[in-house]
Simulated assay, not measured.
Amino acid sequence: MQTKIKAFAYLGEKLNHEVIVDLPLKVTKVTVLEAIKQQFPQYKAEISECSVAINQSFIGKESYVMSDIAEIALIPPVSGG
């Protein structure tokens, strides 16, 4: 299923702030990251370090059904000062 994923921070700039990837009907953080890495292998290392948010909540190992998802976001690590 083709799905739009929002990308933020420096990675958002590299990926034009959103990407469209094919995802299965059930997704996890790993399946989202792998789909993006397949489409953008030149950013594989950066994508591997990202968090994934579904419906504005960070996800871990849980899985989600695509019909329950309104938004997916890719969020690179940030540092504060």
Rank of each mutant, 00 (worst) to 15 (best):
E71T: 12
G81S: 04
I72K: 05
Y10A: 13
S79D: 06
Q38L: 14
L74S: 06
Q42N: 15
M1L: 09
E13V: 12
M1D: 03
I36M: 05
P24Q: 07
L25V: 02
V19A: 12
K26W: 04
N55K: 05
F40S: 06
Q39H: 11
G81T: 05
I59G: 03
V27K: 00
E46K: 15
S57G: 13
A35W: 12
S57F: 13
L15N: 03
V65S: 12
K6M: 11
S51E: 10
I5S: 11
A9M: 01
A70S: 15
E34V: 03
I36Y: 03
H17P: 06
S63T: 09
F40H: 15
A35V: 14
G80H: 08
P77H: 04
A73W: 02
G80E: 06
S67P: 00
V78Y: 03
V19T: 14
D22M: 04
V32W: 00
F8R: 10
Q56E: 12
E49R: 15
K37F: 09
L11P: 03
T31L: 07
G80W: 06
A73S: 15
V27I: 15
S79Q: 06
E18A: 11
I75C: 06
A45C: 00
Y10N: 15
V32F: 04
I54S: 01
K14S: 13
Y10I: 14
Q38C: 09
G80L: 13
V65N: 11
A45E: 14
M66V: 09
K6C: 03
K37Q: 15
I72T: 08
E49Q: 13
I59M: 02
K44H: 10
I72Q: 09
D68C: 06
I20M: 07
Q2V: 12
I75A: 02
D22L: 05
E13Y: 09
E62T: 10
V21W: 00
V78D: 07
A7D: 07
T3L: 01
I69Y: 01
I75S: 08
P24R: 06
M66Q: 13
I69D: 02
V52S: 01
A7H: 04
G81C: 03
C50E: 01
A70Y: 10
K61V: 02
A45F: 05
L23S: 05
V52Y: 00
Q56F: 11
I20P: 02
G81Q: 02
I59F: 02
K37E: 15
T3E: 01
I5H: 05
P24V: 10
A53E: 13
E34T: 09
A35E: 11
F40K: 08
I47V: 14
S57L: 14
V78G: 12
F58C: 08
V52N: 00
E46L: 14
I5Y: 07
E46C: 08
L11C: 08
E13G: 14
I20R: 10
S48Q: 12
D68K: 09
A35L: 13
I54N: 00
E62Q: 15
A70G: 13
D68H: 07
A53I: 07
A45M: 08
E34L: 01
G80K: 10
